[in-house]
Write a protein that binds this DNA or RNA. Structure first.
Lengths: 119, 119
DNA sequence: TCTACAATTCAACGATCATTGAATAAATGG
DNA sequence: CCATTTATTCAATGATCGTTGAATTGTAGA
């Protein structure tokens, strides 16, 4: 991930509705959610949602697949993970005191049993 | 950090010039950089830089202090750290596979010896 | 105090963004 | 094939954002 991609990703997340979409999709898991479901959940029109979905997709944060009449959107975990990694790498430049608290916070994160995220 | 703050922070980072400012300030360390130095380093006018600095400051990502004729800006490590933590917490919701690679990437991060960032 | 330097405020502008409604496309069931 | 459901495209709009240049404020040195 280079600077351009990172900025695009941050820009995509820097909008209330889009942020909620990502959150909803991450919560939904790999199964994802249909566009229509997302629209009602977020509280925006179908047209408007399409606009935001395209933005997020272009930023590599979500992906889609067709399933019957519906189009199912799901979180692009790799993209999200890359973004976090990039942010941490950038912030860590000679200053681990930035990353340390973030990593500590991760330990308090409610991950399921058998959790592999706690290094 | 709540959703509103997180979105504001992402929005602030979602702009090329502002992103570079943060990067420069994080690299510069606690001593920070004078506004004028930043302006030439980033390649924007003083007026324009002030606009971006206000945005970043309002998002809690940087801070400033006056020193003689200059105003010195520096990274707000706590704000940055909070943002990373928030992003990780959000992404980890039932899906540690998102955070795990990010944490792994952190291990590859070039932190100084005596490094406290590797949990 | 006068001058010079450093940074910010202000007003203006073009550009991009978010949202809307109508029209279109894709898929399914009768 | 037709009607219905679901989602996207398109054109238009108001709003916000990024940038600029001129004027202003704050600080220090002669």
């Amino acid at each position: 991930m280079d600077e351009r991609q990172a900025v695009a990703a941050f820009s995509a997340l820097g909008q209330e509705h889009r942020f909620r979409v990502v959150r909803a999709l991450v919560t939904a898991g790999p199964d994802g959610l249909a566009a229509g479901t997302l629209a009602t959940e977020i509280g925006v029109s179908a047209t408007n949602l399409t606009f935001h979905l395209k933005e997020l997709s272009h930023a590599g944060l979500i992906q889609s697949r067709r399933e019957g009449k519906s189009v199912i959107y799901s979180a692009a975990y790799e993209g999200l993970s890359d973004l976090i990694a990039f942010l941490m790498r950038d912030c860590c430049q000679g200053r681990p005191d930035v990353c340390a608290p973030a990593v500590a916070a991760l330990s308090a994160c409610n991950c399921p049993p058998g959790d592999s995220a706690h290094v």
